[in-house]
Nucleic acid binder design. Sequence first.
DNA 1: GATAATACAAAACGAATGTTCAGTATAAAT
DNA 2: ATTTATACTGAACATTCGTTTTGTATTATC
Lengths: 199, 199
Amino acid sequence: MNKKKLQSEQTKRKVADAAKALFSQKGYKATSIEEIVEATGSSKGNIYYHFKSKEGLFLYLIDEWDLEWERNWKEREALYKTTRDKLFGIAEQIILDDLNHPLTKAADEFFNNEEKGSDIEERIDEMVKRHVEFNRELLQKGIDEGEFSPKNAEQLAVILEGLFVGMSRMSRKTNTENALQLYHSAIDVFLNGIIARSS
Amino acid sequence: MNKKKLQSEQTKRKVADAAKALFSQKGYKATSIEEIVEATGSSKGNIYYHFKSKEGLFLYLIDEWDLEWERNWKEREALYKTTRDKLFGIAEQIILDDLNHPLTKAADEFFNNEEKGSDIEERIDEMVKRHVEFNRELLQKGIDEGEFSPKNAEQLAVILEGLFVGMSRMSRKTNTENALQLYHSAIDVFLNGIIARSS
DNA sequence: GATAATACAAAACGAATGTTCAGTATAAAT
DNA sequence: ATTTATACTGAACATTCGTTTTGTATTATC
């Protein structure tokens, strides 16, 4: 059990990579299996041998992407000391990760589509919850350490997530530099809005 | 030129109303012309007689919706004195208007889709610009009158728009009450972040 | 070496869907 | 009254696209 499994994994990787590039460029719906076939040289049947369905393929990519994001963040987190700085760091990574390896657009489209099967919806919900929880822990820490004024961390976490979502959308047509500036300002406002004041 | 034109307008209205309901419930892609046919009793050919295409029909609805929103706001604007209060008022109207007459979901989906023709994209861009400009004027007024600390109003306007977009997304699965609370908190943070401080 | 499992190809399926078009009836214009 | 324009029908068109199926070569298993 060696040569075959290896070859298989390589093929799966190749399909995943091609699909990722296509979904990123064209969006989810606009990318057809046929195009993935053309890009990989693999056959339709083979793609369906490796992935349950188009949605399954996409979800596979999203999961990979999300895991990679968290891995990257954990590597960089130590670079930032205050929660404030961490937030700016997160924004920076979002922009770099999302605008360079951007399944973002496709993900957005996918999340908003209504046709998704029940299992798909579950996994999406999980992901959003993970994000909010991630934010919540970060903010809670900031509150506990007196950096922010004590408020409902859960709700702030949702607001922060929404802010990121919105900024992502607003910066879709701008370049990286402008996006960085926009995110920075947004977080500035957000932080200024929840910061602990000595007065 | 009377009886016929009248009948024609009524039909167009009927199609528009049915389409609006369907797009709202099911989203843009998920709503087929066939379903609009079933809902109206009109024929496919007739729908294409009144509207250039499915996209054209949707855009027609979006335009109507946006105009109505502005009309409603202008009626209510006088109720709020400070810019701060106006922002809360806007949020309230967004939630009520958007969650009750919600083309929001479909609009979101539509805006994110990549396949849109060039003219479509133009009209969408215009709409976003209108929104940002609307925000900008509001914020500029708040700055001029000393309510907010002087900052880049243009960028704040974009952030505010993004915040609304994000909140809309985050409150998709909640009820009106929770949505109101979320928006309120979000604007609280935003205002707190840009407010003029005496200290 | 025979059998079974795996990786892949190619074609066909099938169903959904937006759009067009030839035709018809009704109202307006001349 | 005849012609013309308008509102509308219903069926056919034309694709696109995700998925299934059938078949085959290669590799692992016994």
